[in-house]
Design a protein around this nucleic acid. Structure first.
Lengths: 246, 246
DNA sequence: GGACGGTATTCTGTAGGCAGTCGACGAAAA
DNA sequence: TTTTCGTCGACTGCCTACAGAATACCGTCC
């Protein structure tokens, strides 16, 4: 029970629960956002999403509220939900926080180094390297998330792990385009990190993780500066359906 | 807009918004929890809360879900909401995370030291000292929260500030009983912290904040060991209304 | 031609209601 | 007496419906 729900995907056991509609809706909307079908700043009309997903408004409302708590959408009271517009500044700050949390996690993981944990880390690492070699970016990103999640789990601090996972989910939104650019380098750093954890070298593990996350941040910032997104409307306006003829 | 919703209570300006029912319900339930009217592990029946607060079930549901995201209640699918049972271990970890976040905040605040910010910090500090002298624990705790929130806001990293505020809210649940014990000592440390921030001494500010939060943690742990709470039922059971006669 | 106010429309926020599900209690069997 | 099964009650999850709020459209007036 302790770590079963940390990995999320790792614990596929238990029961393939039918899951509540709310959870399904959450995942569906997340998918729509990361896939770009819902653009940043777009007004999310509850009834529309409800119709699209074939459910009622209530699960959609609840999903939007949870997504708001996780930073995916912004909830303007009385106005509705809008897909969050990721700022350059915010991405920078988010990645900085991630660096902070994960650095500490790595330090703690090295402190209570755990043979079985290290083994699982190595497994994930080889999966990730395989994914990069076969040019499967999605799999690489997913494995990357799992690996980082596992490191935080190994820190032994559940609160820290949960918080880091929350931040990581948001980072993942930005991460995909960077993954290809970073490519194999990232996984070499992972390997070094695991070595440090296995050796129980807190200082080195922390250092590597800090540099690793910092590299990702720099990569992201460079990428973004090369491809400036079009300036979104500063005031998100409620979209209006074209009037019906007749 | 930038910092207005950081303090919560500080920004009483803006609009005396009628606020959505959901938000009111959230605050009401939080209040019921911290005041102890809702005991840890207790089953929260939606219809009951709805009746108590004079609203329908929907706002209550939404409030419970948000509170679940913030760690106040645990949501068991198909079973309902239960007031979170704070573990000793969890409190320890929570305070450790707070230490991490606020240490970094203090460092950053010292980095971009800001005259006006320092002035506001000193104001809060004197308020807090006055509260302690007049033995007003609630005011002291509130002012303490505000001060810490302001430090995180001065860090300039909004994501960090938001996260720290989230953690701080949970800490506050545990903090009240410790406040009296720590008393004036805590505020002397605050003064030293502000001095360091004003001087722009990152290292010293971080050090003071780390020790400060560590003192709180130790205080809390000592207090808890002296007064072990009764072991809550490990399996939260759905409360059952006594059967109607006839 | 531009600005302003009225109106219509759309969406959110909330309420109430129904079916599914989970747990508890009690009876029957071993 | 202990275990197992059936039944009942209550609560959650979801859907539908209604009232209020906010905004865009459009005609009128200056």
């Amino acid at each position: 029970m302790l770590l079963s729900d940390q990995g999320g995907q790792t614990a596929a056991a238990k029961i393939p629960r039918p899951a509540t509609l709310r959870e399904s809706v959450i995942e569906a909307i997340q998918e729509l956002i990361v896939s770009g079908q819902l653009r940043p700043g777009q007004h999310l009309v509850e009834s529309e999403l409800a119709g699209l997903l074939g459910v009622s408004r209530q699960p959609v409302r609840e999903a939007l509220q949870q997504l708001s708590g996780e930073g995916w959408v912004d909830l303007h009271p009385g106005q509705g939900a809008f897909v969050h517009v990721p700022t350059l500044e915010e991405a920078d700050q988010l990645l900085a926080v991630r660096a902070l949390l994960e650095t500490e996690s790595a330090r703690l993981a090295a402190k209570h180094t755990d043979e079985q944990g290290v083994r699982r880390l190595r497994e994930l690492c080889s999966h990730g390297i395989a994914a990069v070699k076969s040019d499967d970016v999605d799999a690489a990103v997913a494995t990357n998330s799992e690996l980082h999640a596992l490191v935080t789990a190994l820190s032994g601090n559940k609160v820290l792990a949960e918080l880091a996972s929350q931040v990581a989910r948001r980072v993942r939104w930005y991460h995909t385009p960077v993954a290809r650019q970073r490519g194999m380098t990232s996984w070499e750093e992972h390997t070094a990190l695991i070595d440090a954890i296995e050796a129980g070298d807190e200082r080195r593990a922390a250092k590597i993780m800090r540099e690793h996350t910092e590299h990702t941040r720099v990569s992201y910032m460079e990428q973004r500066e090369n491809e400036p997104v079009e300036p979104a409307p500063s005031k998100p306006v409620r979209r209006r359906r074209p009037r019906q003829l007749g």
